[in-house]
Computed example of a mutant assay.
Amino acid sequence: MNELLSWGLVIATYQREKILCQCLQLAVEQTRKPSEIIVIDASDHWQNTRTQVMAEIASHHPEIRWIYQAADQRGLPLQRNQGLALATADITFLLDDDSLMYPTCAEEIMRVYEADAEGVVKGVQSILAPTLPSEITINDVPKEVGWHRDQWIPGIASFQRFIWRHVFLMDSDFLCIPYDGEFPDYSVPTSLSHLNVRPVKIFHGCRMTYRREAIAQEPFEPLLLFYALLEDMDASYRVSRHGMLLETSDAKLHHFQSNSGRLSRYVVSVLSAMNQAVCLRRYSNDLKRDRDRFYQLTVRRVVAEIFKDGLSRRWTFPQVCGLLSALKHSPQVFKLSDEELEHWYPYFQKELIASGKPPAFPQTPSTQPAAEIR
């Protein structure tokens, strides 16, 4: 019998106290209990939420190690790294604060890790369930979305999936540019052949779990200060270079996608492309190759967002405008030295969040003020 492993939950949260409590409640009700729960909260009134969580949830589960801290700096990657530094469990669940686990989610994920006799599996993610895990009431407002993948029409579903993946580019694999030129290729080991698992190239940020030592070796990129596409892709791809990433269809999780604490569509679109440029600048083993791939992909994304903004009747086309703005500013990323990039990109993000538009150019990066995130 393989050794039993412990698992812990690390949650980075911001202004989502309503859904956070439900997320934590479902975590402690898992059929396989966590050994620790760590919350890093960047909210304005984090002390109030901490008091509520400790009184209403933690007090009923003293066997669990609880840590609830204020964020040193606001930002999903930074908060996750802060939580990881405090984690001690063998397996770390890095879920979103609006990720709602089905009762056996943790048990099924741990089953995969414990069956991995060769130790080649570095991460496991659940599948996404379209409905809530039980008859629970969510006192929160979901993010507004347009047409989504659950709305397949019988008879043309395969055509819809093609459009979804290749025209709308709504598949993370298409959006990730591997820093080594291609993704690692792994085969599922024989010790896992009896489980419902499949290899994946990268992880979806709301449902990631890792061996703690693997994600500690490849922490979240500290230059990506705010939530946007790629912080999860970047970290999971870097981990995949050390070992296999799997998805298990026996573990289920519902991503509620709370609207609270979100940035505007325009800002997220700018950051999604700029973050990718920054990660390529820092990690690519062939920057010329990947810079060209970045521009080609971003132009394709502009075309895709024209359709998506239009079909969703967003007539200001915020996502299109965001990507066009990123195309304008991303050449700056590829020109900067490492030191200039580390100074300039936090400033760029701070100004974008504060004003709703990127800072004007030209400015000399080395003379710009350091970003203050709090």
Rank of each mutant, 00 (worst) to 15 (best):
A251I: 04
Q257S: 12
I91M: 09
E372Y: 01
Y186C: 05
Y237I: 06
I127T: 15
I153T: 15
L352M: 05
F168W: 14
E218P: 00
D309G: 06
V124H: 05
K122M: 15
M1S: 14
A216D: 08
F183M: 14
D292L: 10
D44C: 01
T190R: 13
E29C: 09
P318G: 12
A115P: 00
Y295V: 05
M1Y: 09
Q22M: 11
G181W: 11
D98W: 10
E221G: 01
G261R: 07
A12C: 05
S366K: 14
V270R: 09
R161E: 13
W344T: 11
S236W: 13
A12S: 15
E372C: 03
L224G: 06
F294P: 11
Q15E: 15
D98H: 11
V28L: 04
S172N: 09
L132V: 12
Q15G: 01
T209W: 12
P346Y: 01
L311E: 11
H254Q: 08
S260G: 05
S366P: 00
V197R: 05
G322L: 12
G243H: 06
I353G: 04
E114A: 02
G356H: 13
R80I: 07
T13F: 07
V121W: 08
R314C: 09
R161P: 00
L128I: 15
A58M: 03
A71S: 15
V267A: 11
L230N: 15
R80Q: 07
L311R: 14
L132A: 14
T364S: 06
L94S: 04
R165T: 10
H61A: 03
T367D: 12
E372I: 11
S264G: 15
M244N: 08
G356R: 11
L327E: 12
Q257M: 10
E218H: 15
S258Q: 07
D97I: 01
K335V: 02
S269R: 09
H255E: 03
D97K: 07
V270M: 10
I37L: 12
S35M: 04
T298P: 04
R50M: 08
R238Y: 12
H45P: 00
D250E: 12
Y210S: 02
V267P: 02
L195P: 03
T51M: 04
I306D: 01
R300K: 14
P184W: 06
P362F: 07
D290S: 02
L323C: 06
D98R: 10
K122Y: 11
G261S: 09
D338R: 13
P222Q: 02
A277T: 03
L229D: 10
V197H: 07
C21P: 00
S158T: 15
I40H: 06
V278G: 11
K252N: 07
S330A: 15
C279Y: 06
E231G: 02
S187N: 15
P369L: 04
N48Q: 14
V268W: 04
V267F: 07
Y237S: 06
E114P: 00
V268R: 15
T13V: 14
